[in-house]
Amino acid sequence: MSPSFVGVDVPDPKLQKATRLGMVVDQNRCIGCWSCAVGCKEQQNVGIGLYWLRVLTVGGPFMDTPAGTFPDVTMSYQSTNCFHCDNPPCVKACPTQATYKMPNGIVNVNYERCIGCRYCMVACPYDNRVFNWRKPVQEPPASVTVVGETPARPKGVVEKCTFCVQRVTDGLLPRCVVVCPTGARTFGDLDDPTSEVSVLLRDRPSYVVFPERGTRPSLHYLIRTGPNAVGGAL
C-alpha cells in the first residue's frame, strides 16, 4: 500500500480555512517539462486547443529556445497560469459578475453567468484566460479522464485556471502542484505566516509579473540563483 500525503490525497484543513491562497514557483527547480500543463488538462477536462496553464520560454520565438549566444546560453522557463490577482482587472471588467473573487482568494468563473463577451480576456494583462470558440473537444473523451467536480463548459464561455477550486475545497492541493516532478510548485495560504509559501517568499527573492500594473498577483516566482542564473526577472 502506497503512503498517503497531506494535501495530495489526505485533506489538509489549512487549505480549507485559507483566506488568500497563493502559489510559489521555484525557477531553480522548473525544468520546463509541461507536466503541470498536462496534469491541469487532465484534471480540469480542458478542451483541445485551450490551456489553463502554459510553460513560457525565454530566448526565441519557439518553445525550448535558449537565451544568449553560444557558449553563454541559458534555458529558463516561466510556467504561467491565472495569477488570481488581489486586484483582478477581469473581475472589474465582467459585466455580469460571472467572474468573481472567492473569500479564499481564488478568482473563479460561473459558466452559467458568462455571456461570452470576452471583456475579461481583454482586461487580463497576462492572457491567462481562454475562450471556447467551439463546443469543447476532449481527447480522450471526458468519461475516461479525471473529471472530479469540474463543471462542464458550454461553447462560447471563457474559462481559466481555478487553482483547482474543487480540490482545494476538499483540502487537496491543485493538480499542477501534485504532478510537478521537481517539486517546483508550492501552494498555500499567503495570509498564514507559517505556510510553506509564506516561508519561501520570506527566505528567497521573488518576483511577480508586471508588478507596475497594480494587479497584485497571488502567484510568485522565486528568482533563479546559481551559475546559470539569468539577469533580471526570470
Binding site: G49, G59, F62, Y126, V130, N132, V209
Partner: peptide
C-alpha cells in the same frame, strides 16, 4: 500582441 510576449505565447483556442 501577447502582453507577456514569451514563446510560445497564447494558445489560439483551436489547434
Amino acid at each position: 500582441k501577447d502582453p507577456i510576449a514569451l514563446a510560445p505565447g497564447t494558445p489560439l483556442g483551436i489547434p
